[in-house]
Structures are given as C-alpha cells and as structure tokens.
Design a binder for these strands. Structure first.
Lengths: 317, 317
DNA sequence: TTCGCTCGTGGGCAATTACTCATCAAACAA
DNA sequence: TTGTTTGATGAGTAATTGCCCACGAGCGAA
C-alpha cells in the first residue's frame, strides 16, 4: 500500500509538473520552485509524464493524418523518404498533389550548393512534376535520364522529361538517346557502347537521388498504349507474374526483377544503388497499388511520394 | 487565390513541423533538414502551430489532490459533475486550465451518438474553452445560446461563443439575436415572441447540458465594463444583496434569483432545469468566490469546473 | 519606375532543457 | 546483520530552443 501510494504520488507529481509545463507553459525552473524540488527533478517529472503518456498531444489539421501514414510507411518499408499528400476524392487525375510534392522535393535537392547528380525517369507523373519546377540556375548539378527518350517509331518520346527539366533549372543534362526497349540483348549492348550512353550509364551509378514513376502492367498500361510493347508480349509477361515496371525494368509482386529476357532488352540505365542513393517513386491510384507495393517490398525504390488512400492501402495487409 | 494558397501552405507547413516536433518527437534541427529550411524557420513554424492552436495538449491523469477536492465538492453540493484543475499560482489568467478542462467535457458530450441539445452561455472563460475544441462533425446535435449575442451598442457581442463553437463542431446552432438586458419586462416579452427567439427558448428547455460562466458583480464586473449595466444600477443591485450572475440572471448570496425587476429585464433563455439537465459553471478566482458559492448553494448550477484553490475555498466554512 | 513597407530569413547569443555520472538512501533477501 | 538492488538526487555538461537583430525579397502606392 505504501509503495503503491508513493508510486501514485510520483505519477501525480509528474502529472502536475507536466500540466504546468505543457498546459500552463511554465519553465521547468518555475515548476521546480513551485513544487519545491530541484530543476532536474522537475525535468524528470515532466519527461516521466510524457513517458507514461499522461500527456497527450494532438494535432488538429488535415495534414496530421498524412504525416502519420508517412511515418508508418517509412517504418514498414525502411524508407529514406516518404511524402503522403491528401487525397482529393473528387479528382481522377493521377498526378494532382503528387506532382506538386515531387516538385518541392526536387527543388529541395536542386537548392543544395553541393554538386548533385539527379536521375529522372519518365512518364506522365514525372512530367507533371517537372512542369511545377520554378526557373532556377543550377550549374553545379547534373541531371541524367534513366530511360531512353526515343519512341517506338524513332521519334522523340512523348514525355520529354529531362529536356523540360534542364530547361527550367539550367543544369547540365544527359539524355539517353535510345528507345526504352530494344529488340535484343545484343542490340542493347551495342547501343550501350555509344559515348553519350556511356556518360549516362556512368552518371546513373553516381546519382545521389532518382525520381521515377511506377508503372503498372496490363494491356492498358502506358507501355502498351504508347506502343513500346505489343499486347501479346504484355499478356505473356503478366501471365508469368510481372506486376509492374520502373524505367522499363519489370518486376514481380515481390519486387524482384523478372528473370525474363525482357529485362535484357531494357536499354535504360540501371537504377542507382539503393544503398548510396535515394530512389523516390512517384505514384498513386488503384491501378498502381500492386506495382507500388511490389517496388517497395523489393526495395526497387527506397522513397515514395503518394497520396493518403494509396498509403493506407500500402499499410494494409 | 495565390495568397490564400500560400497562407494555407504556411499553415500546412506549421502543422507538419508541429507534428514532427510534438508527435514524432524530432528536434527542430531534424525538422529543418527534413523540410529543407533553416532551424530558425522550423522553430518559427513550430511556434506558429502552437500560436494557431493547431497543437492541443491534454493531461490524462486524475491528479489526486484535485480528485479529492472534486469528490468532496460533489458530495457537499450534490453535484452531477465536478472537475478541479491544478492552480497555477503564478498565473493571473482566469481561464488557464478551466478552458482546457471544459473543452474536454464539451467534447465528451459531443462525441455522443445520441442527439443532444447543448446550451452555452457566454463570457471570456467559455470563449477560451470553445477555442480549445477540435474540429468535429456533429450533425446529430444542436447547440443553443442561452444569452443574447447583441451588445449594448447594438453590435454583435464580444464573446462570439455560439458561432465559434458551431464553426468548430459543425452542428446546427441557435443563437439569440437579443441583448442580454432590455429596457423593460414588456420589451422582453415582445422580443421573446420572435420566431428565432422562440426556437431558442424551446430548445433551452430541452437542453441536456449547459455550459455557463459565473459572473461576479461590482463596478468592475464584466456586465459593467462591457456597458450592459450602468454603474448606478450595479451599485443599487449589490446594495440589495446581489452577489453574482449567470447568463444575466442575478442572484443573492444564497443563490436565490433576485426578486428585483432587473431579472424581468434579462432577455436570456431560462437556465435548463437542474432536474433534467447538467448545468456546468466555469469559474475560478478570488473575485468570483462568493458568486460561485452562491450559485452552488442555490443550485443554479449542478456542475462546476474550477481550480484547486477555488475548490478549497468552496469546501471551507 | 521607385520608394517604403511588410514579412520571411539566417546569424548569433542567451535561456532552457536533456543527458550522463557518481552518490546515496531505502527496501529486500540471505 | 549485511550485501545487493533499486531508484531518486544533484552536479556538470552537451544539446536544444527562444529571441533579437539586420538584411533582403516581394508588393503595393505614388
């Protein structure tokens, strides 16, 4: 009984100290003299109140939910960077919110005075992000494209990500004058011997950060719609377990790169090492759920910018 | 639009910084580098979040001393609800602690899924309590103001309690478009025939719970300071035994409503029956001691939120 | 265009808080 | 009784935070 009472007293004191500190806004010195104890003891009582969760702090703002999801995602997948933006239920856009958030993050890297190598993939989401970038002068940085910018018909590809970006931020840039997919592994090796491509390959390995889209697979996936991949080929891939792609690299639902020959025909720069670089995926939406989850699970990416609903899905199961 | 968006972004950032600081327990340095800003800016965002009341701190611990006082108060005056918060000896504020405790109790009622009628008075303390309420969606409840919201000069009154509250909790609300005091009983009867006022009068009778301030009387009482009551009138009232007022209703030191004509000029909704409703007074402080004791003695209120020192006084003698 | 004006920013410094360590007292077991 | 353990304490110190200042960008008015 005595011990119990003393323990209670201590918690009571902790509660009182915590109240005076957090609610009344007094300093620990004031609390100490008010309660007739030393400053250190007051500090201990305050932290005890926190440790015992007598103090509840709450944030009343729509963003609170996003931050919480982000934190949990970061823990669950051991990520370097997570950004969760509010879901706009009224919007069917696959980029709204994501693009703005990605632009902020890209800009943050570009503001660094240390020279950086930024790698970028391609796709609608990334293009939308680039379009949000303000004009900047970044001669200290280099930007490298991870994927080819040549369409299946030989023309320049649809999402002119790296040129738009270099245009906005005035940095040296290194495109990949290749298609995403070539016809054979041999052709890829041949093309990769070009000087320009060599530059890109080498820079890709040095990248500090990469921003990539996450693509779903299926006959209405961008790769098919844009004509990079025949429908039959796509059907064959999905039937053997392919689940998503990043910069053309196909992976299964565990996030393991497919052993299929298709990945030997991808002419993209290999993704930077997730040990040395932050590889941030940009994606949201029902159709991309399984692809995103796979990419995170297999650590193909170690950063993600997504929305609330997608984040909640990724945390489920 | 742009300016508004920027202001929102700033608040969003403040929310984010505040969350990282208080919920995630990061240091301001970590927050600064995570958000790509200077430490000072991070500190500013954190204090902005506090200043904008995005951060709510509450203490979940029945502090023994307070609990004991509360229990004894409850017994002595046969109260339905008592909350005693710690006294901050160094503070001259009349609301610190009371407001937070009241907000918790109001929130408790609002969380009910059963439809409730909540009645509110007015005054500094109540306003401070309302300001602590988190955003909620409470379409099932109705909130009625017990006192008019028209000031002595015809403008909307100072403490915009019911509108602030409805704003935070999104419930149907019924203000009283009247002054607190009118010039004659006849004028009151006339005004009370208005439809809007009729609604409020009727709802007031149905209230499940009421939160009211307890006002002291005297020439520096709010009623005088705010110009509702002339000094001569106040002096006359106090000399005939008036001791305090709740929602304008004047009572003597036994807690009996004055038979004086003044109470026939009060345009407020009659307080809900203490047999069917919980009428909770919010007050602390030396100047209000006798008024609070009278209100409890006369059962004008059957609930109280006060502080330790005031509670001790109420238990003395 | 140019002049103020406001507001945000970063530097620097003082105040405040958190942590580590050695000590000590009380409780408990042998 | 005596050794051991547990846990509180204060000192000292490192880390963190709050605040003031001067500067500069952005914006509206003249």
């Amino acid at each position: 009984m005595a011990r119990r009472a003393e323990a209670n007293n201590r918690l009571d004191d902790a509660a009182r100290a915590g109240w005076l500190y957090y609610v009344a806004g007094r300093t620990q010195d004031e609390i100490a003299s008010a309660m007739g104890i030393s400053r250190q003891s007051a500090q201990r009582l305050v932290s005890l109140a926190v440790a015992e969760k007598l103090i509840k702090v709450r944030l009343d703002h729509p963003i609170a939910a996003c931050l919480e999801l982000a934190e949990r995602l970061k823990d669950k997948f051991a990520l370097r960077y997570v950004e969760v933006v509010p879901t706009d239920p009224a919007s069917t856009s696959t980029t709204v919110g994501i693009a703005e958030a990605a632009a902020v993050e890209i800009e943050r890297w570009l503001k660094s005075t240390d020279p950086m190598v930024l790698a970028v993939g391609t796709g609608r989401t990334l293009k939308a992000a680039i379009d949000q970038l303000p004009p900047m002068e970044c001669p200290q940085h280099r930007i490298v494209s991870l994927t080819g910018n040549i369409g299946p018909d030989g023309s320049a590809a649809y999402y002119n990500v790296i040129f738009s970006m270099a245009d906005a931020v005035k940095a040296r840039h290194f495109p990949m004058p290749l298609p995403v997919l070539v016809s054979s592994p041999e052709e890829r090796d041949l093309l990769h011997r070009q000087d320009l491509v060599q530059f890109a390959l080498q820079l890709g390995r040095q990248a500090n950060v990469a921003f990539v889209g996450v693509g779903e697979l299926g006959t209405d996936a961008p790769l098919c719609v844009d004509g990079f991949l025949a429908r039959e080929e796509m059907d064959r891939l999905t039937s053997t377990g392919a689940c998503g792609e990043i910069c053309g690299w196909m992976f299964d639902k565990e996030g393991q790169l497919l052993a299929d020959v298709i990945n030997d025909r991808v002419a993209s720069v290999p993704l930077p090492s997730r040990d040395t670089a932050t590889v941030i995926g940009l994606a949201k939406g029902l159709k991309k759920y399984t692809a995103i989850r796979a990419a995170l699970t297999g650590r193909i990416i170690n950063g993600i910018i997504t929305d609330e609903v997608t984040a909640a899905y990724l945390l489920s199961a």
